[in-house]
């Protein structure tokens, strides 16, 4: 069952300077708790600030105001590289590094001078619906949907404690999307990983999320349990 929040975000604000020099508010004093072993879905229209929250959680950028804590300690107390490994982000548009699918899956390990742990690969490939026959194929030859799954597997293999997914099923057909998400939901419960799912698909969100947060114009306008919504 969900314990204390792994990540607590308080009063998070973020504005972006636009090309004309003016500033646009993306997030406005957002509070957020993310727990291990549960699925937290962020829903809302595009431009509501969903992807920005994920980028802040992965520290690809920093908030202008507010504080993020991981296990009760401020993000500032960790190195940004540690944050990014422990809080893994899968960007919506998958990027494949040159080389094979295997090269991509081993990418983070190789860059740290480590070997990919042997035992994990088959299980992760299964969760992400990555066919083992793809392993020696050039990654860039795969379809976008296949790349999206490889990209998910690549981040999962990095052993994150919190997994951030930005529209992870946007290029998948409905059956594959359901298969990946249901296996992923089981996986994060057995591995005790916190999952943050950004999607505009309300049906998908309410089906798999334990908590649902709705963002609008940079503010959280509604918090509810996923089950409540499914009962509607």
């Amino acid at each position: 069952m969900a314990g204390a929040a792994a990540i607590a975000a308080r009063g998070i604000s973020r504005a972006r300077i636009q090309a004309d020099g003016s500033s646009r508010v993306i997030l406005d004093r957002v509070d957020l708790d993310i727990r291990r072993g549960v699925v937290t879905a962020l829903i809302g229209p595009s431009g509501a600030g969903k992807s920005t929250i994920l980028r802040l959680l992965n520290r690809l950028e920093d908030a202008d105001a507010g504080e993020f804590q991981l296990d009760g300690k401020s993000f500032e107390d960790y190195s940004p590289l540690e944050i990014r490994r422990r809080i893994g982000l899968v960007i919506q548009k998958p990027f494949m590094f040159p080389g094979t699918v295997r090269d991509n899956l081993e990418y983070a390990y190789r860059s740290r001078g480590e070997d990919l742990p042997d035992g994990k690969l088959p299980a992760v490939l299964d969760v992400c619906s990555v066919d083992p026959s793809w392993l020696d194929q050039p990654a860039r030859k795969l379809s976008v949907g296949q790349q999206q799954r490889v990209s998910l597997a690549r981040t999962l293999l990095n052993a994150p404690e919190i997994l951030l997914l930005d529209e992870p099923t946007s290029s998948l057909d409905p059956q594959t999307a359901e298969a990946v998400l249901s296996r992923l939901a089981d996986w994060i419960k057995t591995e005790n990983i916190g999952l943050v799912l950004v999607t505009h698909d309300h049906r998908l969100a309410s089906r798999y999320a334990d908590y649902l947060l709705e963002l609008r114009d940079g503010r959280i306008v509604e918090k509810r349990n996923g089950d409540d919504d499914a009962a509607d």
Partner: peptide, 13 residues
């Protein structure tokens, strides 16, 4: 930019 951000998001310097 996409390649670099993907690598950063995986914890590379």
């Amino acid at each position: 930019r996409e390649e670099i951000e993907t690598a950063l998001s995986l914890g590379l310097s």
